[in-house]
Design a binder for these strands. Structure first.
Lengths: 72, 72
DNA sequence: CTATATTTGTGCGTATGTATG
DNA sequence: ACATACATACGCACAAATATA
C-alpha cells in the first residue's frame, strides 16, 4: 500500500503537480487523503526519499528535491 | 484440521458468540486455543473470509462481517 | 522569553501478509 | 501441517525541530 502511495506522489512530481522545491503534503495530510496510518505515510515518503525524489526537513516539512542546476 | 477450526468459529458467529463487527480472536490466539500453527489458523480464517463471514484488517485484527443493513 | 501549533523523528506493542524451509 | 523469519500495517505516545503569536 505504501508503494502505491509513493507511486502516486512520484507521478505528481513527474507531471509538475509538485514542482521542485515545493513543499508537499505533510504526513498527517497523506494519512487523511489516503486513509492510512502515519506509519504507512512515512513508509511512502521514506521510499521516495530513498529514490532521491524528495527531502525531509524536521519541523518544517517535506519538499520535492531541487534540480541539480538550482541554487540554494 | 483448519476446516474443523473454521467450522467451530462459524458456529460461534451463527449463535451470536461473535456478533457482527465484533473483533474475533487474533491468529495468535487461535494458535493457543487450538494448539495449532499460525499457518493453520490463517487457513481457517481464509476459509471463513472466502465464505464472507469475516473480514481481515492488517494491523488491526479480524472481524465478523457486518450485516448488509448496517451502517459504517 | 513563554506558550502553542505544526511537522518530522523515534519507540513500543500488536496483528495480518508473505516467503522459505 | 509444522516452524521461523521478515515485511507491512495500525495505534499510541513522546521527543526534537521549526514557526508563529
Amino acid at each position: 500500500m505504501y508503494r502505491q502511495i509513493a507511486d502516486i506522489i512520484a507521478k505528481r512530481i513527474a507531471d509538475g503537480t509538485y514542482p521542485p522545491r515545493r513543499r508537499i503534503p505533510s504526513e498527517a495530510q497523506i494519512c487523511e487523503e489516503f486513509g492510512v496510518s502515519r506509519r504507512t505515510a512515512r513508509s511512502a515518503y521514506a521510499l521516495l526519499a530513498e529514490q532521491g525524489l524528495i527531502v525531509t526537513a524536521p519541523g518544517k516539512g517535506t519538499y520535492v528535491k531541487p534540480q541539480e542546476s538550482e541554487d540554494e
